[in-house]
Write a protein that binds this DNA or RNA. Structure first.
Lengths: 370, 370
DNA sequence: TTTAGCACTCGGAAGATGAGAGTGCCAGCA
DNA sequence: TGCTGGCACTCTCATCTTCCGAGTGCTAAA
């Protein structure tokens, strides 16, 4: 029998072996205990004895799909075994009707506060799957499409910038000196003329000082406005990451060891790490990263399941969960997919969803001290 | 000797007993191991033998300040013992010069992004102390002080609301029908006349429909604006809570048990729980809540140390850390106090800090999908 | 009031034991 | 040739025992 032992690409693997492997993975996912030949013989309907299963198990082990914690223990799936399971054996699970409804309800509830939808989708994924969840928005370049200044009084104004991705940013500015409304208007007009359509990098010191001269601005207003514009663009392009429910890891027996749990959790809680998660530019497939396949050292004995969605404006978002390699891949994947599809539907750049044409609003706020 | 055994209010407790109690607490904080009479005799400079100490320990135990995990183990402080220690024995620690500088630097760095300052202060507190940290802003009623509408095109406009606490909120609105700029201006004027100075509760359906009539608005614009105004006010008054570094709990030996750690961590990760933390209206003293003094069941064997600060605009913020009852209260308290004082200085409603008068700006942003 | 001394207690570490689960392999059978 | 029952063997885990030592409480003397 010709086998190719490389990374789960078994050229030939008998139907029975597949069935047995699937049984091992399923049972191990359920119980977190090594699975023995007898248990498999009883739980499956292959009409053969435990001795036969034993032989098959031995072969699967030597092929690298299974591992034995020690002689005379049952078998557990190796990462390669999980990979094969995920790629070929796993039955695509459907979310149940109740779950689907719960998800829909939760998503619709959140529609009014679109800004929170992203992180809430992560939260939802975590709650549904019982694992820690991450949510991230892929960074994306933006330009300024419009520039306004609201004149409050001689010392105070609000800058409002509308970006190309329909983000609105604002800033309240108090000055220690007075300016005239006309001056502010002139500046706004200059910015509208000169700064729209530019990305962050295009806003050069040369451009700024040219604008400053054109505005006859001797008080540094131009640089205030320019600095804010740059900040708005960069903030907006930075992408964001949220993690929720880290502590759920502790419910998994494989994270009984506080040392190990701490390693993973503190890795997760630094959002910088998450931003580096595998690119989201992919198609909308589910991605499964199993144990050692993780680039990050800290996640080498955890698995990650991710789904990406269309967040509108050509932007993609990502939700995912982190758990032990013994994760219920099929149910997790199904749930994530369902949520991601729901988000794409709600946010996606396709035609506006029915019943949502009346008004589409997004709010945003920040705390300004005097 | 007349003792009052109630809640740590020992009417008379000898100087030597105090010294011994302090030694027990200090040693236990350091080692997390029960402390024996011999160790105390050696580590302190009271010129007496371990036998004497034993007698004193026995008395302290019967007074309720100490506990014995079992006969023939050393003593550990009881919650009452900790309370007494915190109230009377603890030497007010100073933050070291390096720490002070590190804190100042971190705080100043963040000044440009005031919106993140609050949660970053929590993060800083957590990093410095090595415990999970919480940061919260006390909710506070606000009113609208100004109302603007930026007309983008016939179907699109941005609402900008300036609140009494100098928060600016905005919302991008797309309409499925056209409106005229004049109509929008009229509405803005009406809202400026009728809605400013009102709190959330004061914006009644009666007022809204009166405005609608006055504006001859048949397209529901008034209710869009009103709804956003209400939302802005309520969001702004909701208060916020951040938790960072939950996983640090796992480094504490008392949270070796994943069950226990999970209980506390999942309690912390629900920010609704945190909002109910003891009122922050207090003076600017440090608050220490020891184990069973916690109202929340889940925190009964943890301690919380909190410091509140003046966040300007009459608003108070709170930073705190959560750890085992065996917490290094004095160093934690000192660090929190230092950070809180720093924040009060930077944000406080007193005179604007020197070198900060040039301009005070705060940004804010949100993602608006089309 | 302090101290030295001593018997006593108790938890926890270190081995000892045994049960049970599971394996690998062999010999016989279809 | 492949499957099966049987059997000896291995190894973990839970339980039990033993034992050490830290630390106590008490007593009698200083």
């Amino acid at each position: 029998m010709p086998y190719c032992q490389k990374r789960g690409c078994a050229v030939e693997i008998s139907q029975r072996k597949k069935k047995i492997l699937a049984a091992v993975v399923d049972a191990y996912i359920r119980t977190a205990e090594p699975v023995g030949s007898k248990a498999i013989a009883e739980s499956t309907d292959l009409g053969c004895s435990s001795a036969t299963i034993r032989n098959e198990l031995a072969e699967l082990t030597s092929l690298g799909y299974l591992e034995q914690p020690h002689t005379s223990a049952g078998r557990i799936p190796s990462p390669q075994g999980y990979r094969f399971y995920v790629n070929e054996l796993m039955e695509r699970q459907k979310v149940s009707l109740e779950e689907a409804e719960a998800i829909n309800q939760r998503l619709n509830e959140k529609m009014e506060q679109l800004d929170k939808l992203m992180s809430d989708a992560g939260r939802l994924a975590g709650q549904l799957t019982g694992y820690p969840a991450v949510a991230l928005a892929a960074p994306r370049a933006a330009t300024v499409s419009r520039f306004d200044i609201l004149y409050i009084d001689a010392n105070t104004f609000i800058i409002v910038v509308l970006l190309s991705n329909n983000t609105v940013k604002n800033k309240l500015v108090h000055l220690p000196f007075s300016v005239e409304q006309g001056q502010m208007q002139k500046l706004a007009a200059l910015f509208n003329a000169g700064f729209t359509g530019l990305t962050e990098e295009n806003i050069t010191p040369v451009l700024i000082s040219a604008t400053e001269r054109a505005a006859r601005d001797t008080m540094g207003l131009t640089s205030i406005l320019a600095a804010f514009t740059i900040e708005a663009l960069s903030e907006c392009c930075a992408g964001e990451a949220f993690v929720t429910g880290e502590s759920r890891l502790l419910r998994q027996p494989e994270f009984r060891d506080p040392e190990k749990a701490h390693r993973v959790m503190s890795y997760l809680s630094d959002s910088r790490h998450l931003m580096g998660l595998p690119g989201t530019e992919e198609d909308d497939r589910i991605r499964v990263i199993i144990g050692p396949e993780n680039l990050a050292e800290e996640l080498r004995d955890s698995s990650v399941v991710m789904a990406s969605y269309d967040a509108g404006e050509g932007q993609r978002g990502l939700i995912g969960v982190v758990g032990p390699t013994r994760m219920d891949y099929s149910s997790v994947a199904a749930k994530l997919k369902y949520i991601a599809d729901g988000l794409s539907r709600l946010l996606g750049s396709g035609e506006a969803p029915a019943g949502f044409g009346k008004m589409i609003v997004k709010g945003d706020s920040l705390n300004h001290e005097q």
